[in-house]
Each structure stands twice: as structure tokens, then as C-alpha cells.
Design a binder for these strands. Structure first.
Length: 475
RNA sequence: CGGGGCGUAGCGCAGUCUGGUUUAGCGCACCUGCUUUGGGAGCAGGGGGUCGGAGGUUCGAAUCCUCUCGCCCCGACCA
């Protein structure tokens, strides 16, 4: 279809990387596994940040910053945590030309350094809760990397909270998952399934891990955000206690939660098509682009009107007026389609004569003529319509490829074709989970909060089970 | 780490098997000029390369040999 973009049907992986190159979202860095986020891609990230940051602050969180380098010994204080992260850590051994007395780990996540600080800050229940978030980069040495989805260094936010009671911590972990869900659905136009992670899939050092799962267009699952109830694990590891109201010393209860630049990968794989990127209006760096059309002497008049319209719309939206003379309109149409701009306004002499413009939607190519007087209103309406229709389309897709299956053979067949989310009973044993994964390459994505069926038999061992869980091949 | 693919201009490639009119070429992009502009314009002119790197074979290497570095894709670890 579009030049330089491999169709999804032909090669989904290539399509994905082609989209990123064509829309100029990111590029490969000189170091393996690292990526450069280009201005257009970073603008998407900034929009993600802005929306989430506001939601975090509305729920009482404050931003802070903790250092990149963490003493290696810190990481070793929490048993599960070391085991989980040690193999993935980059370690600094030299500084200033000399070997360091203690190697410094580049943060794979900041629980340890943050809890070492919480120890200094928390004395009594009056110091709690502490609700902190940080926007930063982390490094995890990955064997296999893919732009946005898994890179050795990535950008994210990590929330870290400390509470006086287990209930409060649990409430916080669930609340933040709720925020992620709301963000995914309302901003990314991405339907997600909130649920709990199995023991095998949970965060190293957590008591419980929650996550939101989304389905990509190749029917694979992608975890779009996680939230952990860390119990008292880190408080014990870092000896963080507080005096409660009755005067007793207690360990502090903790949570942590995060989303990363992986969300951009999710955005791409959920909505884009063979023409290029498709970005939901609420996250689009440029929601509206104006393409003026003119020949010779018409130029001044058309451009003047285009500028006027741009100015008028700018009060509400980021509008781009593409007044570059070196490209012709057809070329520009393609360019902005490739870059996923949700709405295009075409304005030429014929429109000028009739006081109208042509509007074209990126999501379905629908074209309509609108009087300039009604433009503002119509743009607003269309952007909302696009936002909703992207969500609906993604939801329908997910529903279409969600299956309730109780037979293991059927389970395997369905995973192969057509693929998707398989809701099935599972007894709760890690062994069954592991065997299923080895035999089918599907992982237990989550135990959904909303479970429809009550009782059944484990798809693997046939023992009694009371949870229908989701299995899928995943990123 | 295993399997596959690939390193030649900014990007995509041909040339490699069979060493020699190749002074290393083509398309796109880029620069200049003119004509163009409602779905990726046309013509003319122009700039741009240590052929990933190091050794070797040879009168002669992008091409053959050895070593090496890097990347992409598919698997085992993970947001």
C-alpha cells in the first residue's frame, strides 16, 4: 500500500518497525538494544506523561527524583528482588579512572534506593503515607530487544508509596491500576483487562502484582501497566519501621507501580494500519493538519485563509499548517497519513469560493465538506468520534478473538489459529502454568478481577478450579 | 547463547558465485534552475563512497581466504 511499509498480513514484525521508521518515532542507537526517541515519538511520550502526571497528582502523589546509580549491595537486600533483577543489571565498576570499592548498579527499578531513603524519612505513623512518583530511565540488559516494546534502556514512571496498614497499601495498588486502566481506555483508546498476576508472573519482591492486559492486532497480549502490593518485604529488607498510634514499632507497607515507553508500542500495534501510524486524538502531537492547495497567484489568498483557520483552531488544538512550498498536496496527504495525524483539513480555491473546507479522517478515510463557520464545532465532534471509534474498533477486535475454552486440544489449536485471549479454568498451580507455557508458548496473562464462571476443572490437570484465567501468547 | 539474514552514498539496493573498460553503479532523497500544485510532479544540471574493520592471496580484490566488529529477524530471559 504505502511506500516503505510492509503490510501487516505479510510480516507483522516488519510492519511494526516500518511504521516506526516511516512516522519518525524512533531510530536505532549505536548501542545494541538502545533506541533514540525522535521528536515526534517523544511528543507522544510527553502527552502520555502529561495526562498521567495529572492523574497522579490528583490522587495526592508528588514527583521526586532518585539517582541512577545504586550500590550493588542494596539490590541484594531483598532476596526475590536480587534473583529477579541481578541477571539483567548493568554494573558500573570504574569511575574516575579507578576501580570502585563497591560496584554501582544502573537502576533496573528504584525500590531499593527509595526504601533506603524512606528509612530516614519515616519515624511515626504521622509521616505516612508517603506517595512518590518519579519519571526516569531504567536499564535492564535484554537478550532480545524491539523498539519501544523492549529496549535495554527505557523511560517510565515508577510510583513508590509507603503506608501504615496493609489495607491502605492494597487500596493504593488497586487504585493505581485503576488509573492505568482509565488512562489506557480514555487516552490511548485501548481496552484493557485488569487482573492479578500469577505467582510466576509477579514482580520480584512483591506480595501481589496486578496488571492491565491489552490485545494487539496480531492477537498477542501486551501488558500495558503493572501495580504491585509489596507488603512489608522492602520495609523488612531496609529495616523501615514506624511507631503506630499505640506506640508500637511496625514495618511499613509498600506499593510500587509503573508504565513505560512500551505504551507507545502498544499504541502503534493497537491502532495503526498499512498506510502508517494511527494515533488517537487525545495523544496525537498534531491532532489536526491543514493542507493548503493553490496554484501560482492563488497562494497568498489560500494561505491567508489557512492561517486564519489555524489561528482559530489553535485555541483548542495543536494545529499544524503545512505551508511548505516544496511539496505538493498529494505528497503532504501521504506524509501526514503516515504520521498518523487524526484529522486533515484541505483548503483550496474551490473551497475558498464556497467558504468551506474538506475534512478527512485518518481512521476510516471518510471525507466531508464543512462550512468554515461550523468548522470549530465539527473538528471537535470529529476528534471525539475518532477517539471513540478507535476504542470501539479495538474492543470489537478483542472480543472477536476472545475464547472460552475448556478442552486442551482446542486450546492449542485456537492459540495457533486464529490466536487471541483464551479464558480457561486453572487450578492455581505453578506447575500446570509452566507446563502449559512450555507446550503452547502461551503465558498466563492475568486472573481477571471480573470472573464470570464459578466452578470448573483445570484445563491441564483436570483438578477443581474456581478461576477462569486468560492465557495468550504475549510480548 | 543457538538458528537464519545482512553490512557498498542519507535510505533502499545491484555488482560478489565466475577477480580485470567500473573512473564503483542504479532508484529514492538532497542541492540549483525552469515549468508545476485537489492523492507521492516533469525536465535539465549538480553534490555526495576509506565497498563494516584488520590481515592475507594476486600483476590486479567490493569480488577469493582467515580473523574480527556490528545490526536485523526467529527461539530460550523480561515492562
Amino acid at each position: 500500500m504505502s511506500e516503505g511499509i510492509t503490510p501487516r498480513e505479510e510480516d507483522y514484525s516488519r510492519w511494526y518497525t516500518d511504521i516506526i521508521a516511516a512516522a519518525e518515532l524512533a531510530d536505532y542507537a549505536p548501542v545494541k538494544g538502545c533506541m533514540v526517541i525522535r521528536p515526534y515519538g517523544y511528543a507522544v511520550w510527553e502527552n502520555i506523561q502529561r495526562a498521567l502526571d495529572q492523574m497522579f497528582k490528583e490522587t495526592g502523589h508528588q514527583n521526586a527524583y532518585f539517582p541512577l546509580l545504586i550500590p550493588e549491595s542494596f539490590l541484594k537486600k531483598e532476596a526475590e528482588h536480587v534473583e529477579g533483577f541481578a541477571p539483567q543489571c548493568a554494573v558500573v565498576t570504574h569511575g574516575g579512572g579507578k576501580e570502585l570499592e563497591e560496584p554501582l548498579v544502573i537502576r533496573p527499578t528504584s525500590e531499593t534506593i527509595i526504601w533506603s531513603m524512606f528509612r530516614k524519612w519515616i519515624m511515626s505513623y504521622r509521616d505516612l503515607p508517603i506517595l512518590i512518583n518519579q519519571w526516569c530511565n531504567v536499564v535492564r540488559w535484554e537478550m532480545r530487544t524491539r523498539l519501544f516494546l523492549r529496549t535495554s534502556e527505557f523511560l517510565w514512571q515508577e510510583g513508590h508509596t509507603a503506608h501504615a496498614t496493609a489495607e491502605e497499601a492494597e487500596h493504593e495498588a488497586r487504585q493505581m491500576l485503576g488509573i492505568y486502566q482509565k488512562f489506557a481506555e480514555e487516552y490511548m483508546a485501548l481496552p484493557v483487562i485488569p487482573g492479578q498476576k500469577s505467582e510466576r508472573e509477579k514482580f520480584a519482591g512483591a506480595v501481589r502484582t496486578y496488571g492491565i492486559e491489552a490485545m494487539m492486532q496480531d492477537r498477542k497480549a501486551l501488558q500495558a501497566g503493572t501495580s504491585h502490593n509489596l507488603g512489608q518485604n522492602f520495609a523488612r529488607a531496609f529495616d523501615v519501621t514506624f511507631q503506630d498510634e499505640s506506640g508500637k514499632q511496625e514495618y511499613v507497607w509498600a506499593t510500587s507501580w509503573g508504565v513505560s515507553t512500551r505504551l507507545i508500542g502498544a499504541l502503534i500495534m493497537a491502532h495503526s494500519d498499512d498506510q502508517g501510524l494511527v494515533i488517537p486524538p487525545r495523544l496525537a502531537p498534531i491532532p489536526v493538519v491543514i493542507i493548503p492547495i493553490y496554484q501560482g497567484p492563488e497562494r497568498e489568498m489560500v494561505l491567508a485563509k489557512a492561517q486564519q483557520i489555524a489561528q482559530q483552531l489553535k485555541d483548542c488544538y495543536q494545529v499544524k499548517l503545512d505551508d511548505r512550498d516544496q511539496y505538493r498536496p498529494g505528497w503532504k496527504f501521504n506524509e501526514w497519513e503516515r504520521r498518523g495525524v487524526p484529522l486533515r483539513i484541505e483548503l483550496g480555491p474551490k473551497d475558498l469560493a464556497k467558504d468551506q473546507v474538506v475534512l478527512v479522517r485518518r481512521d476510516n478515510n471518510a471525507k466531508e465538506v464543512v462550512p468554515i463557520a461550523a468548522l470549530q464545532e465539527r473538528v471537535k465532534g470529529l476528534l471525539e468520534a475518532i477517539q471513540h471509534s478507535l476504542y470501539d474498533r479495538a474492543l470489537q477486535f478483542r472480543e472477536k478473538y476472545s475464547f472460552y475454552i475448556d478442552d486442551y486440544e482446542e486450546f492449542k489449536n485456537t492459540l495457533d489459529t486464529p490466536g487471541g485471549f483464551i479464558y480457561t479454568f486453572w487450578c492455581g498451580s505453578s506447575t500446570c502454568e509452566e507446563n502449559i507455557q512450555e507446550e503452547t508458548k502461551a503465558t498466563l496473562r492475568c486472573i481477571p478481577f471480573q470472573n464470570e464462571d464459578g466452578e470448573g476443572c483445570c484445563i491441564y490437570c483436570k483438578k477443581k478450579a474456581h478461576d477462569r484465567v486468560i492465557f495468550a501468547r504475549a510480548y
